[in-house]
Nucleic acid binder design. Structure first.
Lengths: 189, 189
DNA sequence: AGCACCTGTGCGTTATAACGTACAAATTAT
DNA sequence: ATAATTTGTACGTTATAACGCACAGGTGCT
């Protein structure tokens, strides 16, 4: 069985249980037959986009509720020093220091990134629902969002959906440093 | 024709054009037949989730690329500039700029705080489960956590439970600037 | 010019989504 | 206790997704 169908099966079952709906009630609310909802929940069928749309509408939730892939724990008072955490992962003109690694409890991770002059990169889209918060600490840089390069200066902050193609570049003579908070949906607690 | 299919049709055509792929090439990359891709682009068919998954994989992009922006889409791209957001809320030796106001979806808010020389403050505990992430941008300061004043210098970061008494102070001759991410539990999405 | 190849569409066939219905088992009402 | 109702599953039927193939028109090469 397709892994995506498996996720969808679990998500639909979960949503229905949370609302305490029977298959019959869910069928009435969504306009999708009871038999089909049962098939989806058992992972026996992969619905069309149009059918999933009806289901999402009936549950008053978004499509991503049913398409989201799922996402450790740790805690201690620990001072994290960027100077010690900073690394150059590749021969790129870029340095990275993990200020806060990802933790499910908070739903985000945070990096300090240093873009040396000439550095440019376009990232593949993250998973659906992921967003990034950019805060420029020093220098000036550009961020590629919605097919557009936006210029950000020191002290400027921007949030954008990272589940689309996006990028970073520094075409200025000075180094640029920014913090990047990557937030993952359906987490936190 | 279903509005969702219409969006999907346009999105697929756009993606394919951006990559300069023919239907034939796209079929080879995605493992979905040329005839079916054509049907989808003309809005004549609503693919199953499994098929859309194959298409997204072939295009190396996420499912959300092909689905309605109604998926919790970031409404507007807005650059936030600390210099314009900075305020002095009281006659304290402290300035604050709200970089990202609290939003339930992310479960946190973020401030830039400027502690002028001599500023000291001890905060009442937040609600249970609230935590703070401190990142010193410039200068040096101390944070009161667990009854202990910890010294933090530029580039250092610390996370602590804020549902206990905590505080900030700057007893140095230079101004200190830090970012404060306040994360609230049982939120986010 | 002719020929080879590519492109997108239409069509018939196959596979499967989606449906309505029947029904055994479970739950609720009297 | 019995009767009525609800629940989820299986099954056969209908609708449509998904396919392979043919082909008219376009493009590139010689």
């Amino acid at each position: 069985m397709h892994a995506l169908n498996q996720y969808l099966a679990q998500a639909l079952k979960t949503q229905r249980q949370q609302k305490k709906w029977s298959l019959d009630t869910a069928a009435k609310q969504t306009g999708v037959s009871k038999a089909m909802l049962g098939q989806i929940e058992r992972g026996e069928s992969s619905p069309t986009i149009a059918t999933l749309w009806k289901i999402a509408g009936g549950f008053s939730t978004s499509l991503s509720t049913f398409l989201e892939p799922s996402i450790s724990e740790q805690s201690s008072l620990q001072i994290r020093t960027a100077d010690q955490l900073r690394q150059q992962p590749a021969s790129d003109n870029m340095l990275v220091a993990t200020l806060f690694p990802y933790e499910e409890k908070y739903g985000f991770e945070m990096y300090e990134l240093t873009l040396l002059t000439g550095y440019q990169r376009v990232s593949e889209p993250h998973e659906p629902g992921v967003s990034e918060h950019i805060i420029v600490i020093s220098g000036e840089m550009e961020v590629l969002v919605n097919g557009l390069w936006l210029s950000l200066q020191k002290g400027q902050a921007l949030r954008f959906a990272a589940d689309q193609e996006h990028g970073y570049r520094n075409l200025h003579p000075q180094t640029a440093v920014f913090h990047d908070i990557i937030h993952y949906p359906n987490t936190g607690n």
